[in-house]
Design a protein around this nucleic acid. Structure first.
Length: 342
DNA sequence: AACGAATGCAACCGCATACAT
DNA sequence: AATGTATGCGGTTGCATTCGT
């Protein structure tokens, strides 16, 4: 029990990951899979602990990550799920393809919490603040109040019945209330793909990124070079979204058809399965279909930074923190979408 | 322009749990 | 059964960036 053994080692690097470290990790995992995380740093030539590698991969480098701002639909879903699951970020993240628990947790703490409070809702109980602050207050329903999930609305005081109007999931008068949903989630855990429409009072489809007409980075897969930004048509954008919008998309595969775990919670795969894959001499390779698509990388809808003339092997970009950050961001977008290190 | 405050987010820490010996 | 190791999760921190004065 207790701390991970690697934590005792002193020479391990900490802090932000450099592009070189990212490259090493991506190169290693795309080739061999992660297998035992504790052995990854050594095998990949990294002076990091396995835990750090795992976190970096899961939260930033894995190919199926969706980046960019959360859509309103995603925020609504997070709120609904939080009302049912509480701070079970990994379970919430399991319902949002391409989003990580860390990302959702950060969003909750930095943004959603605040928005809920502004609307008069206690973010931890999902009850109206007035109800939380003054238990004696009778819950007289304001029939005229129309709650809304629209978090972009100007902040207004929430009606006493905010909970009922804002969280229909929790106020279903039938027995199918909190316990029902909780049981369903517990039963299915995060190992199964859940049809959210079974649970939610609104029709849920995979969140889609807003279509972009602005410039995006994209790869020419023939030359393995990153092309400079150019204006892309919305039809091309569709090509780029297939990987992020399909949670089960098989981006990598081995020649025997096995899809390796990318480090996400996946209780359905035993360690033996993972090991058997590692023992298999067949290296993981990019799905042929995936490689054929000259996909582009989504650009954050709220990103306002000027385009960076980015090249993976261009050392000039390291001048100054700003450049490093820009590099990191673009590198990550690229690395999440492209297996240039295979 | 300079400075401090606020914000956002990547990464770390410590604990719980599962698994191996 | 006891102990050690590895992994996953949630809370927290630290720092770069943005905002406001």
């Amino acid at each position: 029990m207790g701390r991970h053994s690697c934590c005792y080692k002193q020479k391990l690097r900490k802090g932000l990951w450099s592009p070189e470290e990212d490259e090493k990790l991506i190169r290693h995992i795309t080739k061999f899979g992660h297998g035992c995380w504790s052995s990854v740093p050594k095998l990949a030539g990294l002076e990091r602990c396995g835990k750090s590698c795992r976190l970096r991969w899961i939260n930033y480098l894995r190919p199926d990550l969706k980046r960019g701002t959360f859509s309103q639909q995603e925020e609504k879903l997070i709120i609904e799920l939080h009302a049912v699951l509480g701070n079970k970020w990994s379970q919430i993240a399991a319902q949002l393809p391409g989003r990580t628990d860390n990302e959702i947790k950060n969003l909750w703490n930095s943004s959603i919490k605040k928005k809920l409070r502004q609307r008069g809702i206690d973010p931890s109980t999902h009850k109206p603040l007035s109800e939380v602050n003054d238990k004696a207050l009778s819950a007289s329903n304001d029939k005229n109040s129309q709650g809304s999930y629209n978090l972009d609305e100007k902040a207004k005081p929430a009606p006493a019945a905010a909970r009922a109007t804002n969280y229909p999931l929790l106020d279903n008068p039938t027995p199918a209330t909190h316990e029902f949903f909780l049981n369903r989630f517990v039963a299915t855990k995060q190992t199964e793909s859940i049809n959210l429409n079974e649970f939610l009072p609104f029709s849920y489809s995979q969140p889609q990124q807003p279509q972009q007409e602005s410039s995006d980075l994209f790869f020419n897969t023939d030359s393995n070079s990153l092309l400079s930004a150019s204006t892309r048509s919305t039809s091309n954008f569709q090509q780029s979204t297939f990987m992020s919008s399909n949670n089960n998309a098989s981006l990598f595969q081995t020649s025997n058809g096995y899809n390796p775990s990318w480090g996400l919670a996946d209780n359905t795969k035993s360690q033996n399965q993972v090991n058997s894959v590692e023992n298999d001499q067949d290296y993981i390779k990019w799905n042929d279909q995936f490689l054929q698509v000259p996909f582009l990388i989504e650009k954050s809808s709220n990103e306002t930074k000027p385009e960076v003339n980015f090249g993976v092997n261009n050392p000039e970009i390291y001048h100054g923190q700003q450049s490093v950050d820009s590099y990191n961001k673009h590198f990550q977008r690229i690395s999440t979408s492209y297996g240039q290190f295979t």
